[in-house]
Write a protein that binds this DNA or RNA. Sequence first.
DNA 1: GCAAGAATATTGACATCGGCAAGATCACCC
DNA 2: GGGTGATCTTGCCGATGTCAATATTCTTGC
Lengths: 214, 214
Amino acid sequence: MPDRNDAARERYHHGDLRAALLDAAEEELRLHGVEGFTLRGCARRAGVSHAAPAHHFGDARGLLTALAALGYRRFVAAQERRKQAEGAQGAGRLVAAGLGYVDFARAHPALFRLIFASDRPDQDDPELCAAGEAAFAALQADVQAALGPQEAAGAEGRALLQAAWAMAHGIADLVVAGRLPFLPEGDAAGAEAMLRAMMARSLGAALAPPARPS
Amino acid sequence: MPDRNDAARERYHHGDLRAALLDAAEEELRLHGVEGFTLRGCARRAGVSHAAPAHHFGDARGLLTALAALGYRRFVAAQERRKQAEGAQGAGRLVAAGLGYVDFARAHPALFRLIFASDRPDQDDPELCAAGEAAFAALQADVQAALGPQEAAGAEGRALLQAAWAMAHGIADLVVAGRLPFLPEGDAAGAEAMLRAMMARSLGAALAPPARPS
DNA sequence: GCAAGAATATTGACATCGGCAAGATCACCC
DNA sequence: GGGTGATCTTGCCGATGTCAATATTCTTGC
């Protein structure tokens, strides 16, 4: 194994082309969007021939599926980061998760669309399915934190889960599309307060059940 | 003008190729999605050569832009239909509009994605801009109906508008993606009740301001 | 050590796509 | 009824995704 780190790109065998292609694909996606994504462009960016990706991903769909799965895991991580950073408890975890949802969409708009609004990834792929199920499980756990295991399993739990999810998703998708009209551009704190208020609204009475009714 | 209705497809000049191409494009979009959309496929479906669309729409983007504008107007009409069918008043108009929003997304998923989640239409196109502004104006009018012109112009009006929009959009986009887990498939009335409850949740206190607090 | 086979990457080919240019056909107007 | 502009076709080009054939390198067994 004669050091393959610096001289990797000069050799016939790349060394870690799979990871390099995922990096290249992410950058291509960022620059050109899902609809301008090109397998040959990825290969060029990674410095290999146009047919090289096939050995690692099969076809373009395979590469985009792997990228979507990778992005999905980062999406869950962004929500987790928010929850931990805020030390959120109870229903506050749902609010924090929603803000993390939007964080991810703003940071990686093309990846967000690849995951949620594209037919190109293979939704039956086991890795992608697992990533999606992990995201759903985290959401269910947050609903439990908000309502307790008893309520969370019932109709109110389902309603809360769907409402929080739909609100977060709607905000995120509209932000990516540049269609949230009153979101302040320069004012990060103001924007955050607005998003927080929108999330809180979707939670309804769940936000402060043990407190007095104001 | 020797009757051009039945024999139109046999002639060198089509007669109304622009409209025929829009029909063909809608069907192609429905079948293959935005990402599988093909200008040549549209031309084939309309029974003309592959270069014919250029004379009416310039390029593929032009055709998709015109289709998006057309779809946007239908999208507004779907919301209007709901509001009238329910005879909705006050904040109920926002709920009805949200249900119309979802109606459209379910009936025309690919068109919905073309409008809200695609970079291919030209968002600076005057016709498309006008359609978008009409949709926004209708939403503003519904907020006025819910809060009155006074409140609607203030911060609460902006918050209500964005919350209702984001909730409706989130539901619609998740439905199109097949990701609303608890939406009953066969039970139309149950599904409608669930969507209605989600919309109502996003409106917060605005739903029944003149009534007693239950 | 080293040869055989597997893994990895390249080259070349093909069908299809979007867009352009040149030519054919038709409608309309004076 | 002839000309002019609009409409449509044909042919072409570069780019793309995928496949087959080939070249290079790694690994494994002996």
